[in-house]
């Protein structure tokens, strides 16, 4: 109990020092972030939110607070998704033109920003689809300061269809993209029953299949750790097993769901801290 009270008070104290940060991206769009400065010598943690979310998402906030309390510098940016100064979760029905690569580029800008802040080492922690975003970043624009990638409740961009149909959709999208067709279409995607997006946007997400995720993660030159909840219902039924089979490090928090909320946030924090300490 004493620990909870201490952590709560510490979170309040730390959050008070959370610094809002804005960073103009190459496309002139301004991205917002929250930076908590930690102890020197400790790695800086870049926390990436999940699909369509912001850095205000509770799982991110709690984890950021916990890490900051532990003395780590924490940067929690919000992907713009094509919206300047975005500060709200983007609705499923909004017009989605952003690609997963756009997000990776923004992560690269934030890594640069951290480097400008003299970060000695950077650990990327992604939540949910944020894990895929960091993986995409790592696969495309790997920076030497990035020493580790931790995927929490990592999940692919999922269509609520079987594999064959998914492939069919992907093929159709590819054909559209190839034709340069920018006509928006609606598709049940991830947690969105009606996701409105351009073919290119949708395709960028769907192309990162679980297999591609596993393959990419397995081939990264830095340690990749997946922290999963045993009760996560947003992931595939055998996703954790697939992760384990790919010889990737997997930490499973028993009983935790996709958002690691409740008592499991501390388990998440503990696991992350363990990974940070092991850096």
């Amino acid at each position: 109990m004493v620990r909870w009270i201490f952590l709560a008070l510490a979170a309040v104290a730390v959050s008070a020092f959370a610094e809002p940060v804005e960073l103009q991206m190459p496309n002139k769009v301004v991205a917002k972030a929250e930076y908590r400065a930690g102890e020197a010598g400790k790695p800086t943690v870049l926390l990436m939110h999940g699909f369509l979310q912001t850095h205000e998402f509770p799982t991110i906030q709690r984890l950021a607070d916990g890490l900051a309390s532990a003395g780590y510098s924490v940067l929690a940016p919000t992907l713009t998704l094509g919206v300047t100064h975005r500060k709200q979760s983007l609705a499923c029905e909004a017009i989605h033109t952003h690609t997963i690569g756009d997000g990776a580029k923004e992560i690269a800008q934030w890594v640069n920003w951290l480097k400008a802040r003299n970060a000695s080492s950077i650990v990327l922690v992604g939540h949910s689809f944020g894990s895929v975003e960091t993986l995409v970043y790592m696969s495309a624009q790997r920076d030497p300061l990035v020493r580790k990638l931790i995927g929490v409740s990592a999940v692919e961009g999922r269509l609520k269809v079987d594999g064959a149909q998914r492939e069919k959709v992907i093929e159709e999208l590819r054909a559209l993209v190839k034709k340069g067709d920018k006509k928006l279409f609606t598709q049940a995607f991830s947690f969105c029953p009606k996701y409105l997006a351009t073919p290119q946007s949708m395709l960028s997400h769907l192309e990162w299949t679980p297999e591609r995720i596993l393959k990419t993660a397995s081939h990264l030159p830095i340690p990749v750790v997946f922290i999963m909840g045993s009760k996560d219902d947003r992931i595939g039924v055998n996703w954790i097993d697939q992760l384990r089979k790919s010889r990737l490090k997997v930490r499973v928090i028993e009983g935790a769901n996709h958002f690691m909320d409740g008592d499991f946030e501390f388990d998440l924090l503990d696991n992350v801290l363990l990974e940070l300490k092991s850096l």
Binding site: G82, T84, R86, K87, Q88, A94, I95, L184
Partner: peptide, 22 residues
């Protein structure tokens, strides 16, 4: 203050759709 409003002002490619439906 809506993000999507700013989205349209920056990238108005789908402005008509946004205006008429979204």
């Amino acid at each position: 203050n809506w993000d999507e409003t700013r989205q349209q002002l920056v990238f108005p490619e789908y402005y008509a759709l946004w205006r008429d439906n979204r």
